[in-house]
Amino acid sequence: MSQDVFVIAEHLMGNLEDVTFELLGKGRELADNLDGSLVGVLLGGGVEDLNRQMGKADKVICIDHEQIAEFNPDSYSKCLMEVLKTHEPKVTLVPNTSMGMDLAAALSVDLDLPLVAYAVDASAKNGTIAVTSQLYGGKMNVESRLEGDRCIISVIAGSFSSEDGKSDNVPEVEEVSPPDSLTDLKIRFKRLIEPEAGDVDITQQDILVSVGRGIQSEDNLPVLQKLADALGGVLSASRPIVDNKWLPKTRQVGKSGLKVKPKLYLAVGISGAPEHIEGMKDAELIIAVNSDPNAPIFDYAHYGVVGDLFDVVGQLSEKLKG
């Protein structure tokens, strides 16, 4: 076993995702505290350019092969298994993203390593690893301590600064060939499906009135549309609204939706689950209306109103009209 910290890099459509840099920044701190090295692990096809961007790491271990050009839960977990088995790092940081979710738990079982998921913080003091996870839809944090020597931590995107993970250094790159086990895959990648273009691009708006499950029914959308119109903004939404098909997917804010940074984000009837927060926490001004005084959205909003959204929305529209 080593004292090293490994970061599993994530990239999509030829770019490293922000979360990779966030993990490199945090990984640097952990590795320094543990007196170990920071190692980035990159899987892909034709990814030399990406290697070079990971200068925060002391070394990048790269499997660059056309067979793994696209993410595949089966091939990627098999590749990572080999890498982690060979090097036995103390801590492996995996993004708790769509891709990372298919990897972290898989590695935990196959390598018999503990896993702490939904991490928003991690520390290594005197060799002891402690991890804070955000659970219960953002309503509770739980601090876990590692008992054994090694662990996997899956980290919620947006938990750390991505700037801390950037560096102009060029890391040493160790090229590794893909394992033989890739000949026997039970999953095949078919294609990427790009989203259909929407009527509006919510990432380009100054003002978003964002609606959540608290609006209760599709019939209530016109009231909210009216407010959005009066404010000169557009409607965006949390995931359940889109799953219910009340608004198109292009209006979804969050982890599996879009990241927005409007001048005003008015969140009505949105609880503030971590997957939603990922998409809007950098808005310049966040005002939240929610009937639950303990709704996690209030931890991120600049201004909060505890109350019935319809009362507040009605009054706002009325006054804007006058």
Partner: peptide, 19 residues
Amino acid sequence: GTTVQRMFKPETSDGAQMI
């Protein structure tokens, strides 16, 4: 392989100013 040390509500020190 890990044990829970404590559970706590997320700090709201820089939370919303309530209206």
